[in-house]
Amino acid sequence: MRILTLVRQVLDAEESVRIRDGEVDLNGSKLVVDTMDEYGVEQALRVRESGVEAEVIALAVGPERNQDALRTVLAMGADRAIHVMTELMLDPIFLSQVVAQVAQNENVELIFCGGQQADWDSHALGAATAERLQWPQITWTNGLEVHGQTLTGKHDAEDGSETFSVELPAVITTQQGLNEPRYPTVPNIMKAKKKELRVETLEQFHIGPKLKFLSAEVQAKTRLHKILDGKDAPAAAAELVRLLRHEARVIA
């Protein structure tokens, strides 16, 4: 079985966001593999290690620097990688066309996709890809097992969690709790340098964007920062209650 696992290179959550010319500027910032995607890579590796004969293919769509992210997941253990190179910002509906085409070309049966992108906060890619392929999808997955052609597991639903069963092929979107992603070891980092990383261009896909990105800005709300010292707990508590009642007027 071939497994496709999506890799998005994003700003490290600890880094602050800088804007330049109405766009988020990532130059000089620490970039990492989206944690949500690491869960997918890890799960794909676990499927392969569980005895299922599987090839794990990592896919990234974006600028050249994405190859660092792909090398990282090759070092985690992915078998090979595909990089679709583009400087364009791709909205998820547009991007899903690339992913679906790669999945078809590579005869993939299972796709892992991060549950929410740490840069665009989007959830749409997994479902949009599933729709293009006419596959079912499971979102917010936090438990997964493969038995032959059947996937079973657990995922978060509207008001709690559900266990599910679905036949392959399918798209799985990941969620924290699915697993603990491994760190690449030094020997594996060395080995990863020799693994196949195929570069394609977006033009090969003959598709166009659905959205136009107009601007980005950081709009931090000004906060009052009235922070009281709590050494005298009753006095501080009384003052806070007074402020919330009479100044902020948010409690009765």
Binding site: L224, H225, K226, I227, L228, D229, A236
Partner: peptide, 8 residues
């Protein structure tokens, strides 16, 4: 990011 608070 707080408007009000107590260190305690």
């Amino acid at each position: 990011i707080s408007d009000y608070g107590i260190v305690g």
